[in-house]
Amino acid sequence: MAEHNSIWEALGFRKASGVGEAGWGRTLIVAIVSFIYFLPVLFIIFTAFKPQDAALSVPPTLSPTSLFGLIPGQFVFTPTLENFGSVFMRSMTAGGAPEPTGFDRYFFNSIVIASSSVLLALVIGTLAAFGFSRYPLKGNDTYLFIILTTRMLPAIVVIIPVILMFRVVGLSGSYTGIILLYTAFNLAFTIWMMKSFFDELSLDVEDAARIDGSSDTRVFFKIALPQVIAGLAATFVFGLILTWNEFLFALLLSGPDTRTVPVAMNQAVSSGGRGTDWTLLAAIETLFLIPVFLVTFFLQNHLLRGVTFGTVKR
């Protein structure tokens, strides 16, 4: 019996015990809510597997299997992998030979641009947040507010001067330009978010370390930073999601070589005047979802570990 228990526990099945833990009853309720919340996404993923003619059928087809006769035949479609192939290779004109669409390049661009700009913003922003939190400048709140202001105007207002500026400098259509722009785009959120995490930390631990002879650098890296890992993970995830899907800046500033997937996706589904190509759009979106989904999933443990794990609260 004891052995049996440990296997269940190893799989994550645990009996309810103590404060802050709930049992399978909670799992059932949350599972139903989560599934309903997830349904529109599930529909997009299923659409990616539909044959072209099933995409716009009335009634809408909902499932690739009949679940042992549970779902009536009119709602069932036969899944196909064709759409994923046509993301990378398809004929551009009616009846033409299949040609490469360049989407491999666009995926590469999205990964390079999003990851480097979010990491850059995280490094610069965390340093700044620590500065704002621990070494307040004269007029600290004013600086913070000006930083927040950079997120308040619609992108279209910032974009015209930026286009002109990039054209003069020769940065338009380059990786450097768009990465720097996205770094700035992420900074405001990173600074505000990380500052609120640093503000929550207890100063007692840091002071104790200083009395014991730790340098300011050491206090930052060995004491403050490890306590805000949850905050770093959350900020990274938010920044990545926003940058990954950003459309307007990418549309107006990326050149043919640095085009990101959202821009290419928009062109691919609305080109040729044949209306929206639903299965193609769904296939691109499904592929596009995978990297950011995986990153979020693996950072989740950090997100949930707790902000002030094992320390004194201010």
Partner: peptide, 22 residues
């Protein structure tokens, strides 16, 4: 904390990860 929390949470987070275009 409850069983399978991790897997259910990611389902709820997915809508945010979709591209607005799609």
């Amino acid at each position: 904390q409850f069983p399978l929390r991790k897997y259910l949470l990611i389902l709820v987070l997915t809508p945010m990860m979709l591209s607005v275009v799609a």
